[in-house]
Design a protein around this nucleic acid. Structure first.
Length: 479
RNA sequence: CGGGGUGUAGCGAAGUUGGUAUCGCGCGUCGUUCGGGACGACGAGGCCGCAGGUUCAAGUCCUGUCACCCCGACCA
């Protein structure tokens, strides 16, 4: 095999190509015949299913129930909320003809479901007793973006969108923050990806929201990726869609709403956060397979077959997902490379030589370390510990990386140079004006990612205009 | 929509002054192998992006066109 066919493109030489190589090597997805649309292959979809499973549990714990709303939305719905129209109109796919006839009113393929859901909500909600209404849907949405990239920005993507209605502004805002916290917890404790949570600037706010909260992750090239958002919508949509209720005093009031979502972009985040030049690296809590067993010479060795079966039983009892790779047409080395590309956290090698010593070899995907484990010494427990350790290690690494590449900055001149030579998060004072934000974006391609929660009030000078500023925000280039 | 690039087998590429299409990987069958990407033999697979033109003859030259990728504007 020639050298260029081994391994992947190096991250340093071409990050964009490296990212696509990881996806191809791990067999996760492919572009479809329609521009910008993505085919998610079984390995990628299995990760998505794991994400769904975990998030559903968390939503349920918050009292959120799943439902489903239609794909097609009357075009007039989109135009009811002023900012919302402006934000989404240019990127909508519209159906103008069906059943061989021109439609009286065009139908929009949902770019997001606020409008159609709230139209229904206005019919469902009568009294304060109907509140809070907490609904989530798993769906596909379509946004006709100019440039696409697998998982990060595809024309059609899968997501969940939660839409809640509350009696008071305070309750709604608090709920949207709670949901952001669900996302932060998920990102860190399941994806093993360190994030900064905070408030978006007005320019980056969701179209129609009063406030947008987000979690911002840092990719290995130092660029930011918005991994999840939660919006406090105020009563903007309630007024546009007539979502009203009678309160305890028999007064008719507009309701207060939130929406929040994460998408298949999370898989893109996962890839860029952990992968190395050998391929994907998956955190055990999201891996479709946590362990792959590669037996050596199993077909003519009944003792080995028995040992593998017993080991499999033990793993199963510990709730570990695993597969025994019994393919006879591949040599062990080829299997090792394949599973490494796919990011399986732990690989077990077991052959006649191990059996003699009554042991097997466990190799960690994150560090590449190999350990010999005794077959009689509760091997499954050993593997559980190893998986836990990998999960912790990945988060620790991600956290350290983000912290190392987060810099304080006061001088705009320095910032212009550094954002180029040393990509990362730059914490700086900002006066809050849209003009400064816009200028910085034009001149450096960096945007305000968020005002992190819990930042201390400390006054200083705006990075751009030098006027007094009371807040410090994160500037970074982003995906 | 601007700037740059690429279209030849599933993937990656070569193809000279025009002469009827190569190589590697992958794929199939058989055999030998199997502890870090195995080897041999045989084999399948192509409207050379598309449409015109020049020519006895076009992957190659000319004109047009389409698609895709990368960099911007847009964005979960």
């Amino acid at each position: 095999m020639s050298d260029e066919q081994k391994g992947l493109t190096s991250r340093e030489s071409d990050y964009s190509q490296w990212y696509l190589d990881v996806i191809a090597a791990a067999d996760m997805a492919d572009y479809s015949p329609v521009k910008g649309c993505m085919v998610i292959k079984p390995w990628g979809y299995a990760i998505w299913e794991n994400i769904q499973k975990i998030l559903n549990e968390k939503f349920k714990a918050k009292g959120v129930k799943n439902a489903y709303f239609p794909l097609l939305i009357p075009q007039s719905f989109l135009t009811k909320e002023a900012e919302h129209v402006e934000g989404f109109a240019p990127e909508c796919a519209v159906v103008t003809e069906a059943g061989g006839k021109k439609l009286e009113e065009p139908l929009v393929v949902r770019p997001t479901s606020e409008t159609i859901m709230y139209d229904m909500y206005s019919k469902w909600i009568k009294s304060y007793r109907d509140l809070p209404l907490l609904i989530n849907q798993w769906a596909n949405v379509v946004r006709w973006e100019m440039r696409t990239r697998l998982f990060l920005r595809t024309t059609e993507f899968l997501w969940q969108e939660g839409h809640t209605v509350h009696a008071t502004a305070e309750e709604a805002d608090a709920f949207s923050r709670e949901m952001l916290e669900v996302y932060r917890d998920f990102a860190e404790n399941y994806m093993a990806m360190s994030v900064v949570s905070g408030v978006k600037s007005d320019a980056e706010r969701f179209a129609g929201a009063v406030r947008t909260y987000s979690i911002e992750a840092m990719m290995q090239d130092g660029k930011a990726l918005q991994a999840g958002t939660s919006h406090f919508l105020g009563d903007n949509f309630a007024k546009a869609f007539n979502v009203k209720f009678l309160n305890e005093n028999n007064e008719e009031k507009f309701a207060w709403q939130t929406s929040w979502g994460v998408s298949t972009r999370l898989i893109g985040a996962l890839i860029m956060a952990h992968s190395d030049d050998k391929g994907l690296v998956l955190p055990p809590k999201l891996a479709p397979l946590q362990v792959v067993i590669v037996p050596i010479g199993i077909e003519k060795n009944p003792d080995l077959a028995k040992a593998v079966e017993k080991l499999g039983e033990a793993l199963k009892n510990q709730g570990i997902s695993f597969e025994v790779d019994k393919r006879e047409n591949l040599r062990p080395g080829a299997k090792f490379f394949e599973w490494e590309k796919k990011g399986v956290p732990v690989r077990i090698e077991i052959g006649p030589k191990d059996l003699e010593k009554n042991q097997f070899i466990a190799a960690r995907r994150d560090t590449g370390e190999k350990a010999s484990i005794d077959l009689n010494d509760d091997p499954a427990k050993n593997i559980v510990d190893m998986l836990d350790d990998i999960q912790d290690n990945l988060l620790e690494k991600s956290k350290k990386f983000r912290e190392q590449k987060t810099y304080g900055i006061d001088s705009y001149d320095d910032f212009q140079k550094l954002i180029e030579s040393q990509p990362g998060f730059y914490s700086a004072h900002w006066c809050g004006s849209a003009e400064c934000e816009q200028k910085i974006k034009e001149e450096t391609k960096a945007t305000v990612r968020c005002t992190p929660f819990g930042a201390k009030d400390e006054s200083g000078k705006c990075l751009y205009c030098g006027k007094n500023a009371t807040i410090k925000v994160i500037f970074a280039r982003s995906y």
